[in-house]
Design a protein around this nucleic acid. Sequence first.
DNA 1: GCAATTTATATCGCACGCAATCAAATCGCA
DNA 2: TGCGATTTGATTGCGTGCGATATAAATTGC
Lengths: 153, 153
Amino acid sequence: MAETPVPPDVMPSLDDFLCFAIYATSHAFTRVYKPLLDPLGLTYPQYLVMVALWERDDQTVGSIGDKLSLESSTLTPLLKRLETANYLRRSRDPDDERQVRVQLSDAGRALRERANAIPNCILAASGMSLGQLQRLQSETMALCRALQASRTG
Amino acid sequence: MAETPVPPDVMPSLDDFLCFAIYATSHAFTRVYKPLLDPLGLTYPQYLVMVALWERDDQTVGSIGDKLSLESSTLTPLLKRLETANYLRRSRDPDDERQVRVQLSDAGRALRERANAIPNCILAASGMSLGQLQRLQSETMALCRALQASRTG
DNA sequence: GCAATTTATATCGCACGCAATCAAATCGCA
DNA sequence: TGCGATTTGATTGCGTGCGATATAAATTGC
């Protein structure tokens, strides 16, 4: 007889849901980032895109979407706002006109300096040690990969 | 001389950000839940509200917002959609007309039976043991509380 | 060499999510 | 009792986030 860790006839309390802990913490991060990002004129998802571009410039919309798990329907308007803010340029790849290459502008590269202090602010706000955070990070990413795999499989 | 665990002049890779792991996993959960919730006519945030009401019926908009960390600007239209779907009723409290009391309908209570199988589906999709999930859940909630505390303090 | 298919991005409609603001009801204190 | 301060939800505007669909370019297949 198989074990049923969560009895099928009982709905747990909201506080027992890992998904809810992740959901609430994601929003909590957004709220902690907001006062740090407002002076830079960035939203939190826009900041993630900038981090991805600081890590590697000249990416396509698709490769950014793969990295952030976002669809073009989300990224296209977001990238247009970053282009309007003059942080990047979008241009069709001459070798494959289907692709749009996203490249940092001078202002976008310069923004990196002003964003350098943010990670330590977040570290302080988390109230955890770097080691704890790294362990939590790797376990969360493992969960994320498992969830993604469960959809394809 | 104080340690600087994250050197202030270096922007880490996106993959090193715990906030990004949380952000991506939150969306991954939403995508895993979607095919399970579609037959019930619920979105994922709507499901969380229903779980909160199954746990305790007859709450105010504010108390649901406290539990889920959501503003009335998010909850009011969401609750209206659940009311249109006939899963709950909204009514002003006669003793304090400022408050809106949210109460499950018969259909809303009945929906609980159809949702009972979902937690085990999610458990299976996570690919982790119940013990691992519980530990990750409590660590994530501790982080969430620390982030919330950092904003008030 | 050209039609069919695939790939990459954009567009549209809908549902969150929040800051700012507003209106109504209640509270609290003189 | 009266009236300003507070509390509670609702509204508005903007920015994600996604599914469905559209469009154009590149590739495949015959």
